[in-house]
Each structure stands twice: as C-alpha cells, then as structure tokens.
Write a protein that binds this DNA or RNA. Structure first.
Length: 878
RNA sequence: GGGCGAAUAGCUCAGCUGGUAGAGCACUUGCCUUACACGCAAGGGGUCACAGGUUCGAGCCCUGUUUCGCCCACCA
C-alpha cells in the first residue's frame, strides 16, 4: 500500500460497504462453540411500526460495543435480534393509511386487514434490518425472532393457559382505561397523564321533598347522567340532616340516594360528591360498597348513549357544554371555578382516556411481583445506575392487576373458547375441536387479542425456544445483561423479571443497564411520531456509521440523556479522519515490516517507551470502563490517546526516524513501536468503530485474520512512570518555547535559537531530550546546560526551575516583553503566596496527609525559584 | 402531594476515593509546516445556582432555598 492509494479524506461510504457481509459470512456473529459462560444480550425488539430512530442507534451501539468486546475476549457471544408486533401502535399506523385511502378496517374485514398489517410489517422489518446492518449490529441473524412467529405465539398461549389454571388470570367487569378512538381497553401504564387547566363545576341537585339543593363538585358534568348517588363523609356535620334523603337528578329525574362514605374528603369542593360508578374508578368501588348498580352513559366511542336521555348522540365534549348550559338555564349551577388537574391520554393517539366499565381479562400481579421485589434485595438483580432500583421497587410494591385484553385485531388471539351450546369456557393452548363439557363442536373463540407486552415479557426465554427445553434455552438463559431505556422499566423490564421467575425459576438477567434517552436540540425525545429523528442510514451515509456510533457514545455520560443534532456527528467524523490520516502517515514505512520485539527492544527511545506505556494505560482504562458500563468514558480514553498523545506528540517525535528510511539506525525501534501502537489501538477501537478498524487492520502488515475476532489487548505491564515523567517535562518545555515564539510573532516555519539554563537533576533529562525539544519547538540552535549564559536581549520564561531564553536581538519590543513577563510573574506570585499561606498554617501541616504536604512543599520551592528568576529577568528589562 | 435528576466557560457537557477547575464546539491570533484545513500551534473566557454548615482544605460531603426537567399518585 502506498500513500497514493489512500485518499487524503477518509471515505466511509467506500469502506463501510465492504465488511458487514464478510463478517456475517464468516459466521462471527453466531456464538462460537466452547466451554465457559457465554455473553448473551437480547435486543429490545424494535416495533415494526416504522423505522429506527437515533435513539435506537444509541441503544444498539451500546449493545454492539459490549458484544464485540466480549467476542474479542474469546467467550461465546450471542446478541439475539428480533422484532415486536406492537399491537396498538402498528394497527394504528395501518388504519391511518387506510383512512387516507378512504377506507376503514371494517370495510376490509378481519382477515384482509390482517394481511395489510402483515404487509406493513414485512416492509418495515426489511427497512429496520437494513438499518441494523448499516450501523454494524453484530447480531446473530440465524436466531432472529418475531413476537408473532409460531414459536413465540405458542409461548404466549402456554403462559396464558398456565396462569389461568393457577387462577392468576381472570375475567372481570371492571373500570378500565378506554381509548374511544382506538376503541380498546388499555393498561394503566398505557395512559399518560398531562396537567391541564380545567374547571370545577358546582352542580345543584334538588333534594326531594324540600326546596333545598345539595351541591356537588365535579370536573366532568357530562357524567352526571350516570349518577346513582351523592356521597358525603359520615362525620360531615353539614350533611347529617340529609340522612335518609334522596336527591333528584336533573333532566332524568332519577331519584338517587344520599350515602355516607369515609372515602369522601370533606375539605374538597363542597364535601359532597356525585357517584358515577360506570365512569370513574373511585365511584365504581364506592358503588360496590353500597350495592349500587352502575349506569353506562356512553358508547365505546364516547358518544352519549340511550341512557343519556335528550343528550343521546352527543359526543362527551358536546354533552358537557349542553348540560352546563341547560343547568345554568335552570339555575342549577352554583359556580364554576378554574381547576388544574391531570387528565389521562392514550399513549398511542393522545385521545382523552375514558374510565369505562367493561368486561376484560386481567392478570393478578401481586403474587408475581414478590420474587421480582426480592431479586434486588437478594442481589440477584442489579439495575444501573442504581437510582432506578427505587423506581422499579416502588412500582412493584404498589402493583395493580394488569388488563391484558385489547379490542384489536393485530395481536395474539386470546386462547379462550366458549361453547355455543352449554356456555362452557374452554382455555387451551391448542384450539379445541369440541366442548370439554358437553362435547358440542360449535365453539367460538374470544374476539380480543392480548396486550403487546404480554408477548414481550416472555422475550428472554421465548426467543430461545421455550416451552421446549431446547439446547439454546439451556445454554443462553439467563442472559448476561439487559440494555434499554428507563422509559420501559414498568412496561417491560419489571414484567420480564416477573415472568423469568415464574416460568424459568430465575431472573432473566443479573444486570439491567439503563442508558439515557436521545433528545433533539430542543430537548424532545426522538420519536417516529414527532418526526424529529434523522434516519440512522442517512446519518451513516453523510457522516459514516462509525462516526455516528462514536459520537453517540462520546456525547453520553453514563445514564443521562443526550442532546443530539446531525452536525454533532462531525465529532466522530473528524476523529475517523484523524485516525485515517495518522495511518496514512505511517503505512508507507511499515511496508513489508515484520514485528520483532526482541530485535527492537534494546533500541527503544524514551519516546517509544513513553507511548507504549501510555498505550498500556489506555488499554487498562478502556477495559475497566467497559466492565463498569462506562462506555462513553472508554470511547473518550481512546479518542484522547489517539489524538492527544499519539498524533499530537508521538508521531511528531517519530517522523525523523521514519523519514530516515528502513536502514537507518533507530528504524527498527520506531517501526516496532508504531506497529504495536496501531495494532493495539485498532483492536481497542473495533467495538466502537468496527468498519474503520477492520479496514485499517487489513491494511496493516503483520496482522492476521479479521480484527472482528482478533484478541482483545491484554492489560500489559504497569506504566513506566519514570519515562512518562521525562516526556511530561519535555512537553512543558516545548509548550513554553512555542508560547514564547507565538508571543513574539515568530512564524511557525522559521527556526529560532533557544537557550535553556537548566538546574538540578532535571538538567540531565533535558539534555537527553534536547534533540526532540529542538525538533518540536523549531529551536535551532538549541543550547542547554547549567552554565548557559543569558543573552543580552531575549524573551524569557521559566519552566519549573529552568530558564528559557529566546535571543531576539533587534526583533524584540522591550516594552511588550516586559508587560508579558509582568503578567507571568503576577500569576506566579499569586500561586506562591497562596502556597506559602497554606504551609504556614499549623493545622494544614498537622492534619493534612503527609504526601499532600510534601507535594505542597515541592510546589512552593519550585514557585519560589520561578518567581526569583522571572524577577531577575524582568529587572534587566526595566 | 410524593420521588428522582440537573444547575460548572457563549453552547453541549466531563470532573470517579474532598488537595493547583477540564473537553468538544464557538471565539481571537498565526500557519495550506512533505498524515490530516475534517488540520497544526498559541490564546482569551468560569463568584462551579444561592445561603448556611462540616473540614487544615469543598465544584465534590451535610442542611436549607431557588430554577428547570422527568416519573409516580383514585386532587370528585
């Protein structure tokens, strides 16, 4: 490979096209055979509703980094891909499409509609698969699953039947959350509450046989048509005279009792509450306690029904307006006051949810929650960052029964049949052919489907073949870690833990790592419905998939949200380009090179030893951070090492030896060092930037196979502190000279003489580094030593205790230089005084740690010398 | 009403066991130096939200306050 073969600007499009198929064909993504605990992670199955967002790309990147890293350490790895049918969400988008075509799902009928949804699913499945390949997800496609495939559907039925037989699934007429637009029941978790400004209406109900009224406060006057009582607190003196009385419901003239119940808060509103058991969860319970029969006044689409008298046919909103108007006409509204309260909305369509009495299927959650609660305490489950554990625990402690039936078509049909003849309920995994009680063959299956999460909560074992006792299930359950966002702790994480204990006897994963949510520049969550997320493929085309991955990680401190915008991907793109060009610099000099550590080691320079030492430290840090799920920190370690140490310093130091050619002295050492550094960095970098690292790995001589399965760098020997200190000193001196040159307006390309009057033991080190100092600061000639004479006219500075002079006869403006030195001295004096005060403080000397005091003493000494020398040099200018 | 999180440079954020405040972007100056202008070198810029406290020493620990964000809760 020659320089001319490598373009100046890294072209990711060309490189990223090349490797994915290769890795896949090699079978790297399938778990290798072998002993030892495998590393297993399960994808949070993306919804087939639409394509992936940047949020997904972030979630996948974390999983892929961990999976690729583990693969390189040699353990068998499995990242199992799959997709979620996403019941309501998917049905909604397909229905929306039909609406646009002027059709409804009922025009098509159940079967034809299902075909439409399957087509939709196929389309987006293909799209998502393509996206995952582009961003480099190293998933095992041979094990791909879908929540509605045959095996998972079987698992769903098995679980339903099992829980039913245990008495943990039951059917009941209860108040549930009803979406009048989706026309289905929802679980409590699918309702999103929003604080909104509303009104509190004080309605006057006439008391029978008197001229008086009882005033009830409500936010929803339209539900008054379903009122069956008025309730007050038993100890509320205002209402004790009304014992045994009844009120007359306006419009309907229904006579309703005044009842007494502890649950009424005398301090709220008027202390009297209308009771509407069919449209309010509290009222429902209250009604049950008092034996009241609920009256449903709306139809499923929240239009007033035949029980609403003259208001029949009005929407609930229209009914409210008309009822308030009519009551006002009759003087039955005491007052209306503003009232802020939270109102439930459908998670999927944002309609106001109606508490609605209806017959649904439920899971008793309390018994299932118990082991999931204990899991944390027993240490069988950890949620990172730890603060989320409280959220998880609190939800489980207050858990309520789960409404699992949905009045939809897209989903798993409930495995319950009713006998047309004897009305027997039959609950079976496989469709029965005849009634188990009377033998009749006319059986009708429940029309409803199950909540989409009723399949997702089985994901950790259903994807591995459960209920069959498969090899995969034995080998890969439980998985190693779950990577997901905190927004689905309740929907998914907690429920998976419950199902894991219930059906497998143990937690589905020992660790849950919850990463932040990707937001747009305005702080809104990236979502399909908002349309504020770029397509990862578009970003990959424009900036590169590697760049996207690295950027997301660099932007994400552990566990907090990230603010993303397209342009920020420049961060990753620029890094990719930097690495590419560093490689372009070294590649021609490594042609035909075969690493030989034995031959090189005796000739390693300080610079070589220094970068190798830093490399080792970086490798250790990266591994340590990955183990702690500090993925972003690991990425930063590599970014900083590559750019700040390798490119900014080492490669500059290595250039003369590289340019001198392969036969010059020192060539062996520099080639060895560079080879070692690049082959290590490329391996460390591979989990983060799989494409670029693979490309360069193949371009680097002396490497074998693919970096995808290369050995993860070993921790290596401890840092070489002595050499690191030498180079640190060198950096400081070079920095000071560059600063002087810059202040004196010496053009970068121009060489300029420099004198260093070095003192003490470091003088020897400086002499040893003179060649590099000269190279890096364009100092020519460079004179160092303890006896160096200060030139008559010179810009000067002090590093530690060493004086640096730039003789600038005729070029220097004395006034400018004096001001500069004064500024510098000022700073040193401030530090010196502060340090002095500290060391004069008895408490500090007595109570601070020895090494802290010692460090302070050294610092003061050094500051003192610097001060003294600056003053002396300044004196000359004055 | 409860809980959690955040507040550090103009912007987005690091700062892990208290010991000399950092990065990227943006800005200023000089450079197309034979890897890279997607770059190099130098530089400016901070009462670490506020008020107390603990400590020899606080961005970090404790208490309270303010502002923002998120989650939970049967506020008719």
């Amino acid at each position: 490979m020659t320089e001319t073969e490598l373009p100046k600007i890294y072209d990711h499009t060309e490189v990223e096209r090349r490797w994915y198929d290769h890795w896949e064909k090699q079978g790297y993504f399938r778990p290798r055979d072998g002993e030892g605990l495998p590393f297993v992670t399960l994808i949070p199955p993306p919804n087939v509703t639409g394509s992936l967002t940047i949020g997904h790309a972030f979630n996948h990147t974390i999983q892929d980094v961990l999976t690729r890293w583990q693969r390189m350490t040699g353990v068998p790895t499995l990242w199992l891909p799959g997709f979620d049918h996403a019941g309501i969400a998917t049905q909604n988008v397909v229905e929306r499409k039909l609406t646009a075509e002027g059709k409804s799902r009922h025009d098509l009928g159940r079967e034809a509609f299902m075909n439409e949804v399957w087509k939709w699913k196929e389309h987006y499945h293909a799209r998502i698969t393509e996206q995952m390949r582009r961003i480099g997800d190293s998933v095992d496609w041979s094990r791909e699953r879908f929540t509605m495939d045959e095996g998972l559907s079987r698992a769903v039925r098995e679980v339903f039947v099992c829980l039913y037989k245990k008495g943990l699934i039951y059917r009941g007429n209860r108040i549930i959350n009803w979406c009048p637009r989706c026309l289905t029941a929802l679980s409590d978790e699918e309702v999103e509450y929003q604080e909104l400004d509303g009104k509190l209406y004080h309605l006057m109900y006439p008391i029978k046989g008197t001229q008086k009224h009882i005033v009830v406060a409500t936010t929803r006057p339209e539900t008054m048509l379903g009122d069956v009582a008025v309730a007050v607190h038993p100890k509320d003196k205002r209402y004790t005279p009304l014992k045994g009385k009844t009120a007359i419901l306006p419009f309907l003239r229904r006579e309703i009792p005044i009842i007494f119940d502890d649950s009424v808060d005398p301090k709220f509103g008027t202390g009297a509450v209308k009771v509407t058991p069919a449209h309010d969860p509290n009222d429902f319970e209250l009604g049950q306690r008092h034996g009241l029969t609920p009256i449903v006044v709306m139809d499923p689409s929240a239009v007033m029904n035949e029980n609403a008298g003259d208001f029949r046919g009005l929407t609930r909103e229209a009914a409210r307006a008309r009822i308030v108007e009519a009551l006002q006409d009759r003087g039955l509204i005491a007052r209306i006051e503003p009232h802020r309260h939270s109102i439930g909305h459908c998670q999927r369509c944002d309609s106001v949810v109606e508490p609605y009495l209806s017959l649904q299927w439920f899971v008793s959650m309390k018994p299932l929650a118990k082991p999931a609660l204990e899991a944390i305490e027993k240490g069988e489950l950890a949620i990172l960052p730890r603060r989320w554990e409280k959220v998880y625990l609190r939800w489980l402690e207050g858990i309520r029964d789960w409404c699992i039936s949905r009045q939809l078509w897209w989903g798993h049909r409930i495995p319950v049949w009713t006998c047309a003849k004897c009305a027997e309920t039959i609950v079976e995994v496989e469709p029965p052919t005849r009634c188990t009680k009377c033998g009749a063959t006319d059986l009708k299956q429940d029309e409803d489907v199950l909540d989409t999460w009723f399949s997702s909560w089985l994901w950790p074992f259903s994807t591995l073949g459960w209920p069959e006792d498969t090899e995969d299930l034995k080998r890969f359950y439980p998985s190693s870690v779950l990577i997901t966002g905190p927004d689905i702790i309740f929907f998914w994480v907690a429920r998976m833990v419950m199902a894991g204990y219930e059906f497998m006897g143990k937690a589905p994963f020992p660790v849950v790592y919850l990463h932040g949510i990707v937001r747009d520049a305005q702080g809104r969550k990236m979502s399909k419905s908002l349309g504020n997320s770029a397509d990862p493929i578009e970003i990959s085309e424009k900036y590169g998939a590697d760049s996207l991955r690295l950027t997301l990680l660099l932007l994400s401190p552990q566990g907090s949200d990230i603010h993303f915008s397209d342009e920020r991907v420049d961060l990753g793109r620029h890094f990719a380009n930097k690495l590419w060009n560093a490689f372009r610099l070294v590649a021609p000099h490594l042609r035909d090179y075969t690493p030989d550590e034995q031959a090189a080691r005796p000739f390693l320079t300080d610079a070589d030893q220094w970068i190798l030492s830093m490399l080792g430290t970086t490798a250790r840090q990266v591994t340590r951070n990955l183990k702690a799920y500090r993925i972003g920190d690991a990425a930063k370690d590599l970014y900083d090492f590559t750019w700040r140490e390798l490119c900014d310093w080492y490669l500059e130091m290595a250039k003369p030896r590289l340019y001198a050619g392969p036969d010059a002295p020192g060539a062996e050492a520099v080639r060895f060092t560079i080879h070692r550094v690049f082959s290590t960095v490329l391996r460390l970098l591979h989990p983060f930037m799989p494409y670029l690292s693979e490309e360069l790995w193949h371009a680097l001589p002396g490497t074998e196979g693919d970096v995808c399965v290369a050995e993860w760098p070993a921790p290596g020997r401890a840092a070489n502190k002595e050499t690191e200190a030498k180079i640190e000193l060198l950096k400081e001196i070079v920095g000071s000279i560059r600063n002087l040159r810059s202040e004196m307006n010496i053009p970068p390309a121009r060489k300029a003489p420099v004198l260093i009057r070095a003192t003490g033991p470091e003088a020897e080190i400086i002499r040893g580094q003179a060649e590099l100092i000269a190279l890096l600061s364009k100092a020519e000639p460079l004179e160092t030593g303890s006896s160096v004479k200060k030139p008559a006219v010179a810009a000067s500075t002090v590093v530690r205790s060493h004086e640096i002079f730039l003789p600038l006869e005729g070029l220097i403006d004395v006034d400018t230089e004096r001001k500069r030195l004064e500024r510098e001295l000022d700073k040193v004096v401030r530090d010196f005084d502060q340090s002095m005060r500290k060391l004069q403080n008895e408490d500090f000397l007595g109570k601070a740690k020895k090494d802290v005091v010692e460090r302070e003493r050294t610092r003061l000494e050094s500051l003192g010398m610097t001060k003294e020398k600056l003053e002396r040099n300044l004196e000359v200018l004055r």
